[in-house]
């Protein structure tokens, strides 16, 4: 489904990603872990099509097509979804207006008819109940004044409403309480199917207990320095990134300390 080959990315002429290789097949779950500043969000944002991230080398194929030639909204319509590490506040655009506009724009790009307004609102409300998001948040400005956890849950609501093919979750688990984490995991599990794939950027093993990854990759200094099965996440949680890394030029990194709210 997704094939990243020797991807290099710079921002403001600073090289951040230096030759990433990653193959994600339909139905798979991949976890990307790694120290702060290693380039995880850069990879996620580049895949989503952020114009500030300049691709300096390599290519990305998504469902056989050249992903990098598509702009951000075309990628979304093609089924790519990024749950932001820091969801953006959009004052004055209500959550419901946001969702409706997004969905209809995607449908229009795919040549599908607009959704019936009643079907749409029924669907959204059902998914809000599933995520236990207060219905009042539908009529507030998108993410405006939402708590950290509400913002993350709202990203997953968008995922459920927009029904993408490849979802990239950038630290959606950070800042969630235990129950919210379970709901997010349940929401994402409901989204999973043999045709869909998932990339989870996370610092913690906890989410991976609910969403067991097929592969775990360690990103450091803009490179994937290790890959393994689900057990690698557990090992990293216990030992940190430095103890067992084969890369000798990696600078010393502090071990991630989990949030104490979970």
């Amino acid at each position: 489904m997704l094939s990243i080959r020797n991807l290099g990315v710079r921002i403001d002429n600073k090289l951040i990603l230096q030759g990433i290789n990653l193959e994600v097949a339909a139905g798979e779950v991949h976890a990307i872990m790694g120290p702060n500043g290693s380039g995880k969000s850069t990879l996620a944002q580049t895949l989503a099509g952020h114009p500030d991230y300049q691709v300096s080398q390599g290519q990305v194929l998504y469902q056989g097509q050249d992903l990098l030639s598509l702009n951000v909204e075309q990628r979304a319509a093609a089924g790519i979804f990024l749950a932001f590490q820091y969801p953006v506040e959009i004052p004055g655009v209500s959550n419901i207006q946001f969702l409706k506009s997004a969905l209809n724009c995607q449908r229009k790009q795919r040549g599908e008819p607009e959704l019936d307004a009643l079907d749409f609102i029924t669907d959204v409300k059902q998914k809000m109940r599933q995520m236990q998001i207060d219905e009042a948040l539908l009529y507030r400005g998108t993410n405006e004044g939402f708590s950290g956890g509400e913002k993350k849950s709202n990203e997953i609501l968008q995922l459920l409403v927009l029904q993408p093919q490849l979802a990239i979750l950038d630290e959606t688990d950070s800042g969630l309480d235990i129950d919210a984490l379970k709901r997010v995991a349940a929401g994402v599990n409901a989204f999973r199917s043999p045709e869909r794939a998932l990339i989870l950027v996370t610092h913690y093993q906890r989410l991976l207990q609910y969403l067991v990854p097929d592969r775990v990759h360690v990103l450091q200094n803009g490179r994937i320095i290790r890959s393994g099965g689900a057990e690698l996440a557990l090992e990293l949680e216990q030992q940190g990134y430095t103890t067992d890394t084969p890369s000798e030029d990696a600078p010393t990194q502090k071990r991630e300390v989990p949030d104490d709210n979970g």
């Binding site: 989503a48 099509g49 952020h50 114009p51 702009n71 951000v72 909204e73 990628r75 979304a76 319509a77 979804f81 990024l82 932001f84 969801p87 953006v88 506040e89 959009i90 946001f98 506009s101 997004a102 969905l103 724009c105 995607q106 790009q109 968008q158 927009l162």
Partner: peptide, 14 residues
């Protein structure tokens, strides 16, 4: 904000 809206499928004019 523009990028966020775009990432949800909204074209630039919208």
């Amino acid at each position: 904000a523009l990028f966020y809206l775009g990432s949800r499928g909204m074209d630039q004019p919208t």
